[in-house]
Simulated scan of single mutants.
Amino acid sequence: MFGLMFAAALANSTPVDTGRSWLTARDYPADARKRGEEGILWFVILVSPEGRVVRCDIVQSQLSSELNEKTCSLVTARAKFRPATDETGAPIYSEWQTRMEWFLPSQRQPSTTQSITMPVDMEIQVQKLPKGAREKSVGLVVKIDTDGHVTHCQGIKPDKNDAKLVNVACTQARALTMESGKDNDGRPIPFVRAMLVAFRTPVQ
């Protein structure tokens, strides 16, 4: 009997739904509504190997601490994920980030913007880019060990024309020392996360 073996690949966690069920207009705190409070916040969550949100941290926010805490509380309770996998295909902790926009119910429902719009994690200056482009971004998924070093790296759905850029980005990522991950008990953990790398040419 013969069997086929497929190489496992890193994969970041992905939401089971679109995120619209995490927060709704009904969740708007009464005090914030009275103040007419609206704005945007970025947050990062730690997803367990079982696909549960185990931690939520605000990265940037235009909002009050009340709405910040409300966001993290509801996302932690409601968000469900397909867990990330490491290079062997085994479930692993992962870091996932997005932004939330709070607007008054009379205008529109709060919505999430997926991590494709996340801030740039690393910028690389190059002399020339394909097709004369001034800038080009590539997405990576990386595994970070307990010392903050990138041990595995690959492109996120890379175009075949981006292979060289992905290789350069991964080489640069492996040279970095990043913040190591920790579980809720403060123990160091390896984890997977996405990175956005921007290549830019010098301004003429």
Rank of each mutant, 00 (worst) to 15 (best):
G3V: 13
A9N: 14
L10P: 08
L10V: 06
D17M: 05
L23E: 02
R35Q: 10
G36K: 06
G36H: 07
G36F: 05
P49L: 06
E50V: 02
Q62W: 09
E66A: 12
E69Y: 05
A77Y: 07
R78L: 02
A79L: 06
F81E: 07
R82H: 12
R82A: 09
A84E: 07
E87P: 07
A90N: 11
I92Q: 02
Y93G: 01
Y93D: 01
S94W: 08
E95L: 13
T98G: 11
R99L: 12
M100W: 15
F103H: 13
F103V: 12
Q107F: 13
T112Y: 10
M118S: 15
M122G: 06
L129A: 09
K131G: 06
G132I: 09
V138L: 04
G139K: 08
V141I: 14
V142C: 04
I144K: 03
G148E: 01
G148N: 05
K157W: 09
P158D: 01
L165P: 08
V166I: 15
A175M: 11
G181E: 04
K182W: 04
D185A: 14
I189F: 00
P190Y: 02
V192I: 12
A194N: 15
A194T: 12
F199E: 01
R200A: 13
R200V: 10
